[in-house]
């Protein structure tokens, strides 16, 4: 939809590099995100995909520093030339909602149950805009109209419990758009919704993205949604980016066994119905028991002896990259001699 062949030439709006996020738990410190990096250009849609536990939501929350109990232990989050991991709290508050807005996975619990939706939208506007309550209410009506809630002016007085899940997510989108942000982060925005509502909400997000000329970071585990929406895809596994590249190429010609496995897990009309669906065996390893070497290796069909060593991030054509020994060009002997013990 948006050209991104010149991805590397445009100045990125958001650049995440070497991100590491740690949580303190009863069993010690764990890394939810170990090594994630990607860029988002203006008006581009970047999808972050992966299974549960891959660190994709944590990454999204880390950008706005909304991690509950977690901390950014390493790396940079550069927004518009400014490293957000170094800014003070009040500057961060200025960015939240104003420059970068976010919608969440669970619309049922993401709105304050004690305030009307009008109050909550007005609050989002007036936190960043010095306008009167009446003007803010007019803007709220306009926003509710834009997200497809009929009879917007009377609906302002509705409380969250009077709305369905889909409507609540629309209200969340209205809150996110309140100050016309340049980037919208959507953390699995449709996971909690019906399939029919999911399509509507995704359609709405795409329309509004165009209208507001926003960039979009879409966190999802649904490869179908990725194919539908994304310009650029970042595939996460166990807290690392394992592959990234332009959506069209990545989806048709994956360069990492994990991406490949994710794609074969999607049924198509041609899928043989007599066979079980191609699921990836096993589960994402728990944070405190990461395997040494390649983190996907215990579940990988192509695993071989080199995979007990951490694989390099191999740069490929068109800005693509893959964290896999299979793509490494050099002979393996020399590499095996290197003492890479960081994950041991």
């Amino acid at each position: 939809m948006w050209p991104n062949a010149e991805h590397e030439q445009t100045v990125p709006l958001l650049r995440v590099a070497d991100l590491r996020v740690e949580f303190d738990t009863a069993r010690g410190t764990v890394e939810a995100v170990n090594d994630i990096g990607f860029e988002v250009s203006a008006e581009q849609t970047v999808a972050i995909v992966g299974e549960s536990g891959s660190g994709k939501s944590v990454t999204a929350l880390a950008v706005l520093q909304l991690l509950d109990g977690g901390r950014i232990a390493n790396g940079q989050i550069v927004w518009d030339g400014q490293d957000l991991s170094a800014v003070d709290k009040s500057r961060m508050r200025g960015i939240r909602g104003e420059d970068i807005a976010m919608i969440f996975q669970d619309p049922m619990t993401s709105l304050d149950p004690l305030y009307s939706i009008g109050d909550q939208i007005v609050e989002a506007i007036r936190l960043h805009r010095k306008i009167s309550k009446t003007e803010a209410r007019d803007r709220a009506v306009e926003l509710l109209g834009q997200v497809g809630i009929p009879d917007a002016r009377t609906r302002l007085r509705a409380y969250p419990h009077e709305l369905s899940g889909g409507q609540r997510q629309r209200v969340m989108i209205a809150i996110a758009l309140a100050c016309a942000p340049r980037l919208l982060i959507a953390d699995e925005p449709t996971t909690a919704l019906d399939v029919t509502i999911e399509a509507q909400v995704l359609e709405l997000i795409r329309d509004l993205q165009r209208q507001y000329q926003m960039a979009l970071v879409l966190v999802t585990h649904d490869m179908g949604v990725v194919a539908e929406m994304a310009d650029w895809v970042v595939v996460c596994y166990a807290g690392q980016v394992v592959e990234q590249g332009p959506a069209g190429k990545l989806l048709t010609d994956p360069q990492h066994p994990y991406t490949e496995a994710l794609l074969t897990a999607i049924p198509t009309p041609e899928t043989d119905k007599s066979q079980p669906l191609g699921a990836i065996g096993g589960a994402v390893p728990a944070l405190h028991e990461m395997p040494p070497g390649c983190r996907f290796q215990p579940r990988c069909r192509h695993a071989w002896q080199d995979c007990t060593q951490p694989p390099p991030v191999v740069r490929l054509d068109g800005g693509r990259s893959s964290r896999c020994w299979l793509r490494a060009p050099a002979p393996t002997e020399s590499r095996r001699a290197e003492p890479e013990q960081e994950l041991a």
């Binding site: 969440f104 969340m172 309140a178």
Partner: peptide, 20 residues
């Protein structure tokens, strides 16, 4: 979750606690 939403709007901690 809704407290996270209020924070994501850019509200101060005083507002997060005092109002919501």
């Amino acid at each position: 979750n809704f407290i996270r939403t209020v924070r994501a709007k850019g509200a101060s901690e005083l507002r997060v606690i005092g109002k919501h």
